[in-house]
Design a protein around this nucleic acid. Structure first.
Lengths: 237, 237
DNA sequence: CGCGCTAGCGTGGTCTGACCACACGACGGG
DNA sequence: CCCGTCGTGTGGTCAGACCACGCTAGCGCG
C-alpha cells in the first residue's frame, strides 16, 4: 500500500482530508462534518486520531462541536478566526516566541494602515466606533471595563476598514497582550486622568479620519498606542 | 469536587495547565514536558485528553514531539510560529473565512511597513536578501522554484526588519495563498519575461531601501505585489 | 382524540488498556 | 576494549466501553 510505516501521522491524514474537503467545496461553512465514528472507519484510522484532528480545527476556529442531537450537534464548519488567532499569538507570547515589543510594533503598523485607508476612503461607516467612544464616556467604569471598550474601539476601526484578515490579526494581537495591558493599568496612579487623555486621543483620531487626513490619523493612533505603553511601563520585554 | 459536570473540557484543562506553566516560567523553550502518561495522572484526566491538547500545541508550533528516548524524544517546548500561522491562515482561506483579496491587501500593508522601516533604519543587513536575489538570476528555474525564492525574498526582508511577529504573519499569509499563486503562474504565457520583470522590481525595491527612500520603497513593493496578482489574474475572490 | 411524558438513539466527551515503533543505554559476549 | 543485543521509556494508534446530552418518536393517560 504505502511506506512501511506511513510517514504521515493518522491525525494528519484526517486533517488533510477535511482540508481537501473544504477546498473543493464538499464542506462549506454551516455544514456538518460526518460523525467521528464514521470519519474514522472511512479513513481507516482510530476514532482518537479523528478527535485529535477535530480538536485542532476547533482551536483554529474552523469547527464548532456540540453534543446531543439536532441541528446544533456534531462538528459544524464555521470560520471564526479570532479565537484561533488569539490563542496562537497568546501562546507564542507565553512561550517567549514573540517578544512583547514586536507585538506592539505590529499593532502600530496595522492600526496605522487601517486609519490611513479609512481616511483615504472617506465613506467608511464610523458609527460603531462612535458608539464605543460614547460608552467610554461613563465615569463609573473600572479600568478593566475601560480597557475592554478601548480594545473594542480599535477592533471596530479595523472592521470598518472591511479587511477581515487585518481585523482578526489585530484582535489576536490585542488579546495576546491583554494581561500585560491590564497589569500595566494597575501601575497607573492617576487612572481618571489617563482615561480622559485616552478618550481625547480617540476623538482626535476619529476627527483626523473624518477630515480625510491619513498622515494625521496614522501619527495620532501610533502616538496613542506608544503613549499608553510607555505610560504603563510596558516598554520592552 | 467541582461543578456537576465540569464545564471545561478535559483537554482544555491540560492546555491551560501548560499555558500557565509557560507563563510562570516552569516551562521554557528547550524544556521537555512531562510524559503524556504522567501529565494524565497529574491532572486527573485520560491520556487521550492530554494527547488532544498536545496535538493543538504541536500544530500551533509550540511543541515538537519525538518518539524513542534520548534528548530528542518526548514533547519539547519550541516557539516556531510560522507553521501554526500558516496552517491557521491556510485553513481559514480554505473555509472561506478569509477572502483572498483581504489576504493580499494585508500583505501590502505589512510589506509596505517593512520596507518603510528598513529604508528609515538604514543599517539593516540586506545581505540575505541579496543572496536570494542572486539565486533567482539562474535561468533554469522552474516557475515553482522561482516562486519559492520569491517568497523567500519577501520573508527575508521581513526578517531583516527584526520583527518576528511581522515575519511570521507574512510567511503565513504568503503560504496561505501559495497554491493560488502557483496556479496563477501557470496562466502566464510569457513566464521568462515575467520573471525578468519581477527580478528587476526586486532590485529596485532593494535600491530604494538602500537609498533610504521609504516612500519609494513602499510604493515599489506594493506595485510589485499588486502587479503580479493582476498579471496572474488573481484579482478578486 | 389529543396532549404530555418517557424511553430510545445518535451524537460528542472521556477513560482504560493494550499493542506497536522507535531510539537510547546498559549489559554481556567476543 | 569494542560491538551487538536486549531492556526500557517514550510517543502513536487503536478498540472498546461508558457517560452526558438533546432531540424524537411513540406510548399512555386524560
Amino acid at each position: 500500500m504505502q511506506s512501511p510505516t506511513d510517514a504521515r501521522k493518522a491525525w494528519q491524514v484526517v486533517l488533510e482530508h477535511i482540508e481537501a474537503g473544504l477546498i473543493d467545496g464538499r464542506f462549506t461553512p454551516g455544514d456538518r462534518l460526518p460523525p467521528e465514528r464514521e470519519l474514522a472507519t472511512t479513513l481507516g484510522v482510530g476514532r482518537s486520531s479523528v478527535r485529535e484532528a477535530l480538536r485542532v480545527l476547533e482551536v483554529l476556529g474552523l469547527v464548532r462541536t456540540g453534543t446531543g442531537s439536532g441541528p446544533a450537534a456534531g462538528a459544524i464548519i464555521i470560520a471564526t478566526p479570532h479565537g484561533g488567532m488569539a490563542a496562537l499569538l497568546r501562546l507564542q507570547v507565553a512561550a517567549q516566541g514573540f517578544p512583547l515589543g514586536d507585538i506592539v510594533q505590529t499593532r502600530l503598523l496595522l492600526e496605522g494602515g487601517v486609519v490611513d485607508s479609512l481616511a483615504r476612503a472617506g465613506d467608511a461607516d464610523l458609527a460603531p466606533a462612535v458608539a464605543v467612544l460614547d460608552a467610554m464616556e461613563r465615569d463609573d467604569l473600572t479600568a478593566a471595563e475601560f480597557l475592554a471598550l478601548d480594545a473594542q474601539f480599535h477592533l471596530t476601526l479595523a472592521e470598518a476598514s472591511g479587511n477581515i484578515v487585518v481585523a482578526a490579526v489585530m484582535a489576536g494581537l490585542r488579546s495576546s497582550i491583554e494581561d500585560y495591558v491590564r497589569e500595566g493599568a494597575e501601575r497607573i496612579t492617576d487612572w481618571a486622568g489617563t482615561a480622559a487623555r485616552l478618550r481625547q486621543e480617540h476623538r482626535r483620531i476619529l476627527t483626523a479620519v473624518r477630515e480625510g487626513d491619513p498622515e494625521g490619523a496614522r501619527a495620532r493612533i501610533q502616538a496613542h498606542i506608544t503613549g499608553y505603553y510607555d505610560h504603563a511601563g510596558l516598554a520592552r520585554s
